[in-house]
Amino acid sequence: MPRPRTQEKRRLDLVEAALQAGADRGLRSLSLADVARRAGLTRGAVLYYFDDLDDLLVEAHRAGIQRIGDQRDELVSAEAEPSRKLAVAITSGLPTGPDDALMRILYEFDVLAGSSELHDVLVQRMYQRQAATYRDILAAGAEDGSFRLVGDIEETTMNFVALEDAYGLHIVAGNRLITVERARAAMFAFARQAGCPAA
């Protein structure tokens, strides 16, 4: 039986293999055999660490929540001014580029929403984390007077998440008309229009 540390590393390696295989093949056609091939293991070896493909995908989605939720919130909390917090939230919420495998597979979860209860739950969970980050920043800025919100805070929050997702999807799809830099600039422009400038 593998040692706990070795077992955890193998699980992380399998999550990374699932992300890479999912980015290559798409979630609709992804199988445990695809993940096993990518990891250089047998299908049975993958099943030693995960009950089934859904179990593995939940773990992959958890990695996304850690990055878009936990890691981003850590970066945001390191800033003192709401305008800086918002700038960091926008920048760290976008994909790093077309080859961002984790973000690509997260958008695939969005596409599959409605096809299974699992995908519905995962997509809603991700949205709630994204929204919480933006909502908290907007509320703090409105409270200290640095933001003068033009509209309802919930609608503004929803628009930030929608822009993040829409631009992110174009970026991972390789649309050269919407680069990371252009998406960031457009979200900063929306922030100014909404009365919460990012700096």
Rank of each mutant, 00 (worst) to 15 (best):
88 V>M: 12
88 V>N: 07
88 V>Q: 10
88 V>F: 03
89 A>C: 05
91 T>Q: 10
91 T>W: 11
92 S>R: 06
92 S>G: 06
93 G>H: 02
93 G>S: 06
94 L>D: 13
94 L>Q: 15
94 L>T: 12
94 L>F: 15
94 L>E: 15
94 L>I: 10
95 P>D: 10
95 P>A: 07
95 P>C: 11
97 G>Y: 12
97 G>Q: 15
98 P>S: 07
98 P>N: 11
99 D>H: 06
100 D>N: 07
101 A>Y: 02
101 A>V: 12
101 A>W: 02
101 A>S: 05
101 A>F: 01
103 M>G: 08
104 R>V: 04
105 I>C: 02
106 L>V: 06
106 L>Q: 03
106 L>K: 05
107 Y>F: 07
108 E>C: 00
108 E>Y: 00
108 E>S: 02
108 E>Q: 08
109 F>Q: 06
110 D>M: 11
110 D>C: 12
110 D>I: 13
112 L>N: 07
112 L>C: 03
112 L>K: 08
113 A>L: 04
114 G>R: 03
115 S>R: 10
115 S>Q: 12
115 S>W: 04
116 S>L: 00
116 S>E: 00
117 E>S: 15
119 H>Y: 12
120 D>P: 12
120 D>R: 09
120 D>G: 13
120 D>M: 09
121 V>I: 13
122 L>Y: 08
123 V>F: 05
124 Q>L: 08
128 Q>P: 11
128 Q>M: 14
128 Q>D: 14
128 Q>Y: 12
129 R>F: 15
129 R>Y: 10
129 R>D: 14
129 R>E: 13
129 R>T: 15
130 Q>S: 13
130 Q>N: 14
130 Q>K: 13
131 A>W: 04
131 A>L: 06
131 A>N: 03
132 A>F: 04
132 A>H: 01
133 T>D: 11
134 Y>W: 03
135 R>F: 13
135 R>A: 13
135 R>L: 09
136 D>N: 07
136 D>I: 03
136 D>G: 05
137 I>C: 09
138 L>V: 04
139 A>F: 04
139 A>D: 13
139 A>V: 05
140 A>C: 01
141 G>I: 10
141 G>H: 07
142 A>Q: 09
142 A>R: 03
142 A>M: 04
142 A>K: 06
144 D>Q: 07
144 D>N: 04
145 G>P: 05
148 R>N: 13
149 L>Q: 01
149 L>M: 08
150 V>P: 00
150 V>I: 06
150 V>Q: 10
150 V>G: 02
151 G>Y: 15
151 G>L: 10
151 G>P: 05
151 G>T: 12
155 E>L: 13
155 E>N: 15
155 E>W: 13
156 T>W: 12
157 T>A: 00
157 T>D: 01
157 T>M: 00
159 N>D: 12
159 N>L: 09
